[in-house]
């Protein structure tokens, strides 16, 4: 399989094109995903290649649109529904949480809802409080959903194809700042398994778990720390539900220190889940320091660029926190 450098959004688009080519049941739905090409130009020219019957612009009806996608998935289609911003999923919580997540269970396994929701997420674009949130933990709390968060173009493609192959509803949180990031992506079809984390950088002094844009900040921090002799292991979380217990626990057993870095609001979030998971496991016995969470501020995402920057973890903060953790200052 040949690999070349393409962007995160190109990788997603490529995955959707592969799916549209290989499975007539696949349709795309979303607001302005046709001629406009999607708010972030992810669907771009797919309407020209596959036509409006397969690439359907929906009215501005998040609840209804998500519900139509759920009903379609229940009856034979495989819709990929794009929320223009993941924040707008709040309008569709009913269909995602009460319907998509629970139909299989409520119907005793007699039904399946293979829908994929694409969720552009995250701050850093100046879009302020209602267009910048990282809400993945909300959905991580719901049994019946699967929630993934690709950090690289390769995973953006592989996780989308895995989501389509999955018989259950999958939410893909795509960080808006990553859309233009380029990286090596294999050609053709392949899947990245849902529920498997990846050790992005091996190290022995501290485990840093991060996803999406935070992975790249954590890796950057780890390189700076390496110059001081601090050897951080960085785990790309990739999947929030199901979560990869074993990779994280095994790493903590090796390093004895854990830091979770995520953009969502710090309290009640992904960091809490991972911290608790370690605290409840045998890996607890290997801890040489308290667990640290670096999460978003307890505030909506602000508009002012300086405020926006400090509202979520940045490279320097990750570096400083990891340093003090390893030096035994915490």
């Amino acid at each position: 399989m040949t690999t070349r450098e393409i962007s995160y959004s190109e990788a997603i688009r490529e995955a959707m094109a592969i799916a549209l080519d290989s499975d007539p049941a696949v349709i795309l739905m979303g607001e302005d995903i046709g001629t406009y090409g999607g708010a972030f130009q992810v669907t771009l020219d797919l309407i020209d290649r596959y036509g409006p019957e397969r690439v359907m612009d929906t009215p501005i009806s998040e609840l209804g649109g998500a519900g139509v996608a759920v009903g379609a998935a229940l009856t034979g289609l495989k819709p990929i529904f794009e929320f223009q911003f993941s924040d707008f999923a709040a309008l569709a919580m009913e269909q995602i949480v009460n319907q998509a997540a629970k139909l299989r269970y409520m119907l005793g396994g007699e039904a399946s809802v293979p829908v994929v929701f694409r969720m552009p997420a995250g701050s850093g674009t100046g879009a302020a409080a209602q267009h910048s949130q990282s809400l993945e933990a909300w959905f991580g709390h719901v049994p019946g959903l699967k929630v993934v968060q690709p950090s690289t173009p390769e995973d953006a493609k592989g996780l989308l194809l895995a989501a389509l192959a999955d018989p259950d509803p999958v939410l893909i949180f795509e960080h808006k700042l990553l859309y233009k990031m380029k990286g090596p992506v294999p050609e053709g079809a392949y899947t990245t398994p849902i529920g498997k984390a990846r050790i992005a950088r091996a190290g022995r002094d501290v485990t840093i778990v991060a996803g999406a844009i935070m992975l790249h900040r954590a890796l950057e921090a780890a390189e700076k720390l390496a110059a001081e002799g601090i050897d951080a292991e960085v785990i790309d979380l990739r999947s929030i539900r199901p979560i990869d217990h074993e990779t994280i626990l095994a790493s903590v057993r090796r390093t004895g220190r854990l830091m979770v870095v995520y953009e969502g609001v710090k309290s009640y979030g992904v960091g809490a889940e991972i911290s608790a998971m370690v605290a409840e496991s045998d890996a607890f016995d290997y801890l040489e320091a308290p667990i640290l969470r670096l999460g978003g501020a307890e505030a909506p995402i602000p508009y002012n660029p300086d405020l926006e920057r400090v509202a979520v973890p940045q490279t320097d903060g990750i570096e400083a926190a990891a340093r003090s953790l390893v030096r035994g200052e915490v």
Binding site: A25, L63, V68, G71, G76, L77, E94
Partner: peptide, 21 residues
């Protein structure tokens, strides 16, 4: 459906499946 109105978009989705397939 335990949610009032919960089944309405789902019915439209089922109709969409019939049409597309």
């Amino acid at each position: 459906n335990g949610i009032v109105g919960g089944g309405i978009p789902i019915a439209v989705g089922a109709a969409l499946s019939a049409k597309k397939l």
